[in-house]
Design a protein around this nucleic acid. Structure first.
Lengths: 252, 252
DNA sequence: TCAGAGAATTATCGCGGGTTAGGTTCGACC
DNA sequence: GGTCGAACCTAACCCGCGATAATTCTCTGA
């Protein structure tokens, strides 16, 4: 079983078996975080990079008035920091949303590996670029999309990201976050998330219950949410199920 | 006269004179863009990285319904793409807001320079990290701040970023964007930007007229906007004017 | 000096989404 | 089976901000 990290990086570079073995060898130092506990808190001086192996985490910030904003969701295979540098101190938190297994990586080791192996260098930079563009799209959602579109768009994004690491299929995926947390990510109140979920359900797109999101009509949801997967920069190759519409990234 | 790029990078690494000469030597290929014209359009395959030397630009995206979201402002000294990779295609635009002079850099040249010179490597990665955290703060603003705070927070941020490259002093700075563009960045309508500006003026914090922002009470504005400059990751050293409150980044 | 265009400004009206408050369901634990 | 807390769901009310439109300001160029 290949790691989610490697599965994702295949989207960004042609990796040989040796490349993949090298990348998997990075995850030596395994750690565990309980749900709702910080992996890093604001002000911490991180000693290593964080690679999520199992479970969901997020980057979030608590404001002076107690409000919370979730800046990014981290899924299995995601690096929480850029691979080339360690922040001298954290100005936000990395928080486990579920029980999380993660590895601690050393940036000098990653940089050295990238220097010696150009496929890996390409893959790591591709991952950094994709992570940035995820942020860009988040800004677009918060700035210019209505609540229902925001939710729908997020569901489409999560679905594609999870599918790449084998954690989603056509019927849906596990969505282990509360409606409050969805609101904290989308700049909405929990109440309005609930209203919007009801609307998505009544439109026949999705159904969220018991921490699982059922996709009833994925294509209709994508169309409704104006979801263009180009920003994910997936090449579409290893999405084993041909029934999915491949992103048009490569064709552009 | 040192370039704004070098001036900014001094905030992230100890640069020798030779380092600075190397960095300035990168800007060989000079280009010019007219105000309101794209430097890169959506779908373009960029052939080089963009370094802003003079004028203001932005990263923006036009939605299907015609709405626009400005994802980031680029000031003199800013790199519009990560230094290590060229996006295979653009999924948003880089647009000049004023007449812009920029340089085209080659990522392989930058990566090679970073490999041979660890101060420059440190500086470039520091810059990439700071750019990402700017995006994080943008998400926080759009998600959880009210219109007036968003505006105030943006003014504080622009002031610090411009001051580092010598384009702002205690009294204010040139702000060559329309209220519509401020709204496109902050997820607001132009009308509401105007309302919020009036409020900031009536509170005695700032005055915006003729494309210049006068800072009437910067400390009060920072307090009002809950502005914590830690996310900019400036070390505070080369801010020649001692009257400014140095960011607390280094002390954390 | 005047005309025209774009930007700034202000007022009115209505909607999207926040706030508050209540009830319901569910799972964990005793 | 009963209790407790967390999450889910719904309704009523209200406010921040969007939409529209009309007016004024500013700059540019003929």
């Amino acid at each position: 079983m290949t790691s989610p990290f490697v599965r994702k990086l295949r989207q960004g570079a042609q990796l040989s078996t040796e490349d993949e073995i090298l990348l998997m060898g990075l995850s030596r130092s395994l750690h565990y975080a309980e749900a709702r506990h910080d992996i890093y808190s604001e002000g911490d001086r991180p000693g290593s990079l964080t690679l999520i192996l199992k479970g969901w985490a997020c980057r979030d910030k608590i404001l002076e008035n107690g409000q919370r904003q979730i800046i990014a969701f981290f899924l299995p295979g995601d690096l929480c920091e850029p691979f080339g540098i360690l922040p001298p101190f954290m100005n936000h938190s990395i928080t486990a949303l579920t029980p999380v297994t993660y590895a601690r990586l050393r940036p000098d080791e990653l940089r050295a590996m990238a220097q010696e192996n150009s496929s890996i260098e390409q893959a790591l930079w591709w991952d950094a670029l994709a992570a940035m563009e995820l942020q860009h799209e988040h800004v677009v959602s918060l700035g210019r999309r209505q609540a229902v579109e925001r939710l729908g768009h997020l569901f489409c994004e999560l679905h594609m990201r999870l599918a790449v690491v084998g954690l989603a299929d056509r019927t849906g995926f596990s969505l282990p976050v509360t409606q409050q947390e969805l609101g904290d990510a989308l700049g909405l109140s929990a109440v309005h998330v609930n209203r919007s979920l009801r609307e998505l359900r009544s439109l026949g797109f999705v159904n969220l219950r018991h921490r699982r999101l059922d996709l009833l009509d994925l294509n209709a949801l994508k169309e409704f949410s104006l979801f263009d997967p180009a920003y994910l920069r997936f090449n579409g190759q290893p999405l084993h199920d041909g029934a999915w519409s491949a992103p048009s990234a490569v064709e552009r």
